[in-house]
Amino acid sequence: MKQLHGTGVALVTPFREDNSVDTDALARIVHYNIDGGMDYLVILGTTGESVTLSQQEKELVIHTVVAANGGKLPLVLGVGGNNTALVVSELQQLDLDDFDAILSVSPSYNKPTQEGIYQHFKAISAASSKPIILYNVPGRTGSNMLPQTVVRLATDCKNIIAIKEASGDMLQVAELIGQKPEDFMVISGDDFTALPTVLAGGVGVISVLGQGLPKEFSSMIRLGINGNPSEAYALHYTLLKGMELIFKEGNPAGIKAVFETLRLSNALVRLPLVEASKDLKEQIVAFMHAFYPVHA
């Protein structure tokens, strides 16, 4: 699965003023990331506000991204939840022909034990016709998928090929990289730890900020993968303020403000999220001015 090395982005779902999915803006964002040198695209993840989309809207997002991508980049589809039977049923019904893998988040709210997490993903593995990327994000799910559980799943389920690790804990990342099967991939799910994860032996990142600054973010990751840490960290430090700003009032409010600055889409999000504040937008415009002064 070399196509999933490097920089992937968790795409936003833009909305119009009437709260409908803005397919024109979504297509523009896809083209912008293709032109910016992104390695692959992730659809209907957390950043895509998938939990607020109807099934019909999810199908519209999939159709829009697949058509705009035109086969240029590998695609990953988010399929997860805290009802194991429902996730299994969805996987059995979905047409996954256009996708290289699925991304499935560890169950939220239920707070399962490590055995519960293992059994959840074992059931998903049996139902999936595509390779699976696990997604560990304790800050959202309320539980942490420990390295021992990940290694167990990677060993027992051959179609579980990677993890998007967003614990933000580099000790946990290092432990996982040290214990994992050789061909199992550790992908950073956190912009702040993306470069350290790559330099520790990870294969890349699924980024949020990267979709707003695809050239810069993908260049940083490539430099890290190719063993140029000093040049990679120089880019990391130029991007650090942007990483801080886009998460300041929650994701994806911040990255949608970036796209508003770039004039690719507006900054609207769906409740219970709210749009970035005027103050945050002004800070994001100032940050983006250093990269794209024409738009700022």
Rank of each mutant, 00 (worst) to 15 (best):
H31K: 04
Y32D: 11
Y32A: 12
D35C: 05
D35I: 08
G36C: 13
D39C: 02
D39T: 00
Y40L: 06
L41C: 12
V42Y: 09
V42P: 11
V42C: 10
I43F: 05
I43H: 10
L44R: 11
L44N: 10
G45W: 13
G45K: 13
T47E: 15
G48I: 15
G48M: 15
E49P: 13
S50A: 12
T52P: 07
L53D: 10
L53M: 15
L53A: 09
Q55F: 04
Q55V: 07
Q56N: 10
K58D: 06
L60D: 09
V61D: 07
V61H: 07
V65K: 03
A68H: 09
A68F: 11
G70W: 07
G71Q: 04
K72Y: 13
K72P: 07
L73G: 08
L73R: 08
P74S: 10
L75G: 02
L75A: 03
G78P: 15
V79H: 07
G80T: 06
G80Q: 04
G81T: 09
G81R: 14
N82P: 07
N82Y: 03
T84R: 10
T84W: 02
A85V: 02
A85G: 11
L86W: 11
L86C: 08
E90W: 07
L91E: 15
Q92P: 10
Q92R: 13
Q93G: 09
Q93W: 04
L94V: 06
D97L: 01
D97F: 00
D97Q: 01
D98Y: 03
F99E: 15
D100K: 01
D100S: 03
D100Y: 02
D100G: 05
A101M: 13
A101W: 09
I102D: 15
L103V: 14
L103Q: 14
S104M: 06
S104F: 01
S104D: 04
S104G: 02
V105E: 04
V105M: 04
S106M: 00
P107G: 05
P107V: 02
S108A: 09
S108D: 15
Y109T: 03
N110H: 00
N110K: 01
K111G: 00
P112E: 00
P112V: 00
P112K: 01
Q114T: 03
Y118C: 06
Q119M: 04
Q119S: 06
H120I: 02
K122Q: 02
A123E: 03
I124M: 08
S125K: 12
S125G: 11
A127W: 01
S128E: 10
S129N: 14
S129V: 07
K130G: 09
K130W: 03
P131F: 06
P131E: 14
